[in-house]
Design a protein around this nucleic acid. Sequence first.
DNA 1: AATATCCGCAACCGCAAGTTT
DNA 2: CAAACTTGCGGTTGCGGATAT
Length: 283
Amino acid sequence: MGRQPCCDKVGLKRGPWTIEEDHKLMNFIINNGIHCWRMVPKLAGLLRCGKSCRLRWINYLRPDLKRGAFTEAEENQLIQLHSRLGNRWSKIASHFPGRTDNEIKNHWNTRIKKKLKMAGVDLPTHQPIDLDHENGVHKDGDNKEHENQQVEEKEHEFSTKLNETTTIDDQDLLTNYEVLMTGGGNLELEGAWSSRNTNYSTTSTNSDQGSSSSSIEDSSGNHLYSQDRHQSAGSKAQLGDDGEDYGSLKQWVDSVDSMFSWDGFMNTNTTTSTTLAGKWTLL
DNA sequence: AATATCCGCAACCGCAAGTTT
DNA sequence: CAAACTTGCGGTTGCGGATAT
């Protein structure tokens, strides 16, 4: 015997709810609470299925709903959470008191998706879109100049977005760290990093056989993480050749992946300059 | 002013997980 | 232990208002 439908749909009303139906449902739940959704429409005198009543209550009638437009801080938090959790809307919604998973899903699909696409961020990976692969453009002459311009624009947009990320709630403060890294190995710490008084230090040499070491400590000097990077002449040559291969710096970031997940933008403009703008999430 | 197109959102559907019998 | 049932989740649809032509 197969699974039966949640309710007998014959004779049941569908589509938008009327004010009268809303009142009936709200009055019933306020007076009786929710014990069994299947029984709610029958007891409340509604020609709806229990599933429809539940949805209406959760997404519209619940008294603790926040409503109203998303703030910029909420959007930034949503982007962060989505990069970590993917399309797990209910999990994401649990970080937004008064917001429903449906509301968040809708906001993501109608606004943020477009925003990130415009900023050159691939979804759902949150990685920068490979324009050459997307467009089938060969890198030479004018194309390269045009491409560099696009890369700079993307970089600027992403950096701006990160700089705007200043509000992080307490729970996220424990697990999220925002970093903006520019130049040949210099790190500028943003947002939660500085809030947590975390120190980051890095040293490097300029030889072809150059090496660097990086470490992260908390404000009391307790060791959190360190990394020694030995860069071969071969990997140095990769840096900036065509912007496609991030060379040893990318390898370095990859090696950190066991501890953090990297989500962001990385570009190598020249053999000596690499720009990263993105987020490390503590795994 | 009329029509077409776009966009946001509420609501639906199917499925999976969890619970009860 | 399996079937029946309930609840919750995520993808999708379609209506209605806003905007463009």
